[in-house]
Amino acid sequence: MRPDPSAVRTVVCAGTGVIGGGWVAYFLARGYDVVAWDPAAGAEERLRHLVDAAWPALTELGLAEGADRSRLTFEPDLARACARADFVQESAPEDLDLKRRLLADIDAATPAGVVVSSSTSGYPMTDMQTECATPGRTVVGHPFNPPYLIPLVEVVGGKLTDDDVVAWASDFFRLAGKSVITMEHEVPGFIANRLQEALWREALHMVASGEATVEQIDLSITDGPGLRWPIHGPMMTFHLAGGQGGMAHMLDHFGPSLLAPWTRLTAPELTTGLRDAVVEGCEREAEGRTIDDLVAERDRGVIAVLRALGRA
């Protein structure tokens, strides 16, 4: 018998990199006790640095009652960590064999009925739950970077996931303050990542062919369609592009352009030259700002957008 989503008090975060650490910061800010586990050397120090860096933004957004960084425990033993869980969020690197083994270990150590969620950015749960003794409680809870600021979580189960687990996880994330898409079918890369990937691949093609610089690509989004997307997504944006005739007029008028060679969805070869061009372009655009500087800048901007739209 699993606890009610509203009864969750202790969240275990297995894996504390950029995504897992972001989850730790978020759950702490929402007033949960968090037990973190990560086998990497120096993981606890990096995690606490990440949480401290995120805390000003989370404080500005508003902390839940009882939220405190002192409620974080770093536990080096996975079994001892999972034994305390009311909910588990796994955020290990994107390595299928690793995730299979880790989810099986988490499943073996976690009390019966407790839901185990994965932050995977692309693997179907069907492929990851194969070694679990009780795969019915495993589900994908795919967040967006940084999880402590970006509201969306995509929830989807695998072939062996119990239907009530998908519903439970969706309810839990909503209670925790997230915006949730509950997917009815597994899709590689889920929804948002597939859309991001299409844009990313086209950007790499343009850099590789010399058609655009890194700076031009970023400006084309931040000062172009990116300004519309916090208000209306791509479908509603094109609905408005049809004027009073809406999407119907837009499709009838611009539909033939879908056959024009405007995009190349296959990925370009990641040559050394392309890699170096992208890295050097990002360094130029950063203009000496450190990663911590850029994180703080991003967080201030996201908060401003959320507040301007009445979502924070």
Rank of each mutant, 00 (worst) to 15 (best):
P124F: 05
L309P: 03
S257C: 10
E94Q: 01
V116C: 02
V295E: 14
R284I: 07
D4V: 05
D95F: 00
E131S: 05
R101Q: 13
C282W: 14
A29D: 03
S118V: 01
A85V: 08
D107Q: 07
R80G: 02
I221Q: 12
I221T: 13
A208T: 07
L258G: 12
L270G: 06
V214T: 12
L102G: 02
L251T: 11
T138Q: 08
T59Y: 00
M235D: 11
S70P: 00
F254H: 14
D164Y: 11
A167F: 05
E283V: 14
A25I: 07
T266S: 13
N145H: 13
E65A: 15
G310R: 09
A67I: 06
D38K: 00
R9E: 14
E285M: 15
A169K: 06
E269M: 11
A53P: 02
Y148Q: 13
R69N: 09
T266H: 14
L102I: 06
W55G: 10
I221C: 12
D68I: 07
P76L: 11
R311N: 05
A108G: 07
L240V: 12
T263R: 08
L47R: 06
C13D: 03
L98Y: 08
A192V: 15
V114W: 04
G245M: 06
L28R: 03
A167S: 14
G233W: 08
E287W: 12
G233E: 09
L258R: 13
A7P: 05
H185F: 12
E94I: 02
G122R: 00
H239E: 14
I150W: 06
L219S: 13
P39E: 09
T126G: 05
A57E: 03
E94F: 02
I191M: 08
A43P: 07
R194H: 09
Q244K: 13
E154K: 01
T16C: 15
L274D: 08
E154C: 04
A7D: 15
A203L: 09
P225R: 00
S220F: 09
R100T: 03
V34C: 04
G17E: 01
D107E: 07
M125A: 10
R201H: 06
G17L: 03
L240I: 12
G31T: 05
R9D: 10
L78R: 07
F74V: 13
G246L: 07
G141F: 02
R228S: 12
D276R: 15
I217R: 04
E184M: 10
F190K: 01
L240S: 09
R71G: 04
R300I: 08
D77Q: 06
T120P: 02
G20F: 05
F254L: 15
R289Q: 14
